[in-house]
């Protein structure tokens, strides 16, 4: 079967108008999502992951807008779609679940009402049929006694259960794409693992593509088919999980890896990346990560690094990586001669 690209984000720029000026949250992000695959987006908080996700759904806050770029869904640019058509995209073609399940469900409506609302919006199911579908979805995500639970309110559910309900709601209309914006960040570690397990299961059963947004590399290590590393609203590096974990080329990715515990670094001190995230009101001319980079060179200050193939064939936008590639190329050339 040929791999079908279901969603292409091309050179996306999104910014917010604020009292202090224009906050450029996303600055030229591009990626392709293959049908049925899992794409991970990692980066520190503030790197523009959520804004990228909300741009796809067009659920940005009032002061935000897509400045340029395209978002192709099955080849159609949805940034050109009118709001009425976008309503059918949301929840039916593409769903999103959020970071904090405690606040993501409306406290004054029953779980059943909120699930059925989504079902009625996008399918012909009404009345009992909608209710049955809601119960079926709750069962699917592992909520016990769904007939009883459906009449309850969000406050009667734990955080993990609420996230299951969010997942049920997101998948009720069988979307092609599920965006999960830090779905486990607000949960306990044991619950985190359960939710991730559930998402993997459901992906295998239902076959939707997933965009898994997280600031925690560990979360997507075993899940993602492809990983994008973001910083300052740009993509720094992209590749398979192995590429990113074992052959990181961008200085920022290397820093991220040093800051998480792993078997390799056991016993060593973890090093958080020093310095503060960049000021999006005033983006540097060169590499966004340059002010915090230990290996910065003169060119890093002056020019944005283009995405370039690394020695092993994945992509990174880092002058150091480019230099390494040139060095390697020279060595190869020398060896040939």
């Amino acid at each position: 079967m040929a791999e079908e690209t279901i969603l292409s984000v091309i050179d996306l720029h999104t910014s917010f108008t604020t009292d202090k000026g224009e906050v450029k949250a996303v600055n030229g992000v591009s990626f392709n999502l293959t049908a049925g695959k899992i794409l991970g987006i990692v980066g520190e908080s503030g790197s523009g992951k959520s804004v990228s996700a909300y741009s796809i759904m067009q659920i940005l806050e009032k002061n935000g807008s897509i400045k340029s770029g395209q978002i192709l869904y099955k080849g159609e640019d949805i940034t050109k779609w009118p709001e009425s058509k976008m309503r059918d995209f949301r929840g039916k073609r593409c769903s999103i679940i959020f970071q904090d399940p405690m606040t993501s469900l409306n406290p004054v409506f029953t779980i059943g009402y909120q699930l059925e609302e989504a079902i009625k919006l996008h399918t012909d199911r009404r009345g009992k049929e909608a209710r049955d579908r809601a119960i079926e979805m709750l069962e699917l995500v592992g909520v016990n006694e769904p007939q009883k639970r459906i009449k309850q309110y969000p406050f009667e559910f734990s955080g993990g259960m609420r996230q299951r309900v969010m997942i049920a709601m997101a998948l009720a209309c069988e979307p092609d794409i599920l965006i999960a914006d830090e779905p486990t960040t607000a949960l306990d570690v044991t619950i985190q693992a359960q939710i991730l397990e559930l998402m993997k299961d459901l992906q295998a059963k239902l076959g939707m593509a997933i965009i898994m947004v997280t600031h925690d590399l560990g979360v997507i290590a075993q899940m993602a088919d492809e990983i994008i590393v973001m910083y300052g609203g740009r993509v720094c590096e992209r590749g398979t999980a192995e590429d990113i974990f074992y052959r990181p080329a961008h200085e920022y990715t290397k820093g991220l890896l040093r800051s998480i515990p792993s078997v390799d670094t056991m016993g060593q001190r973890l090093e958080p990346i020093s310095g503060t995230p960049i000021n999006l009101l005033n983006m540097p001319k060169g590499c966004a990560f340059c002010p915090r980079c230990d290996a910065a060179m003169k060119i890093c200050l002056e020019e944005q690094p283009p995405e370039t193939r690394t020695v092993d064939g994945h992509l990174a936008a880092c002058w150091q990586a480019i230099r390494a590639e040139i060095d390697a190329g020279m060595i190869r050339a020398e060896q040939k001669a």
Binding site: M57, K92, S95, I96, F98, S104, N106, L121
Partner: peptide
Amino acid sequence: QDYVRTARAKGVASWKVLFIHTLRN
């Protein structure tokens, strides 16, 4: 609130988001 964003993300029309999901709360 997050649940208002959830309602929009589900594909609920904006007037319904306002009258059903926002006003009641």
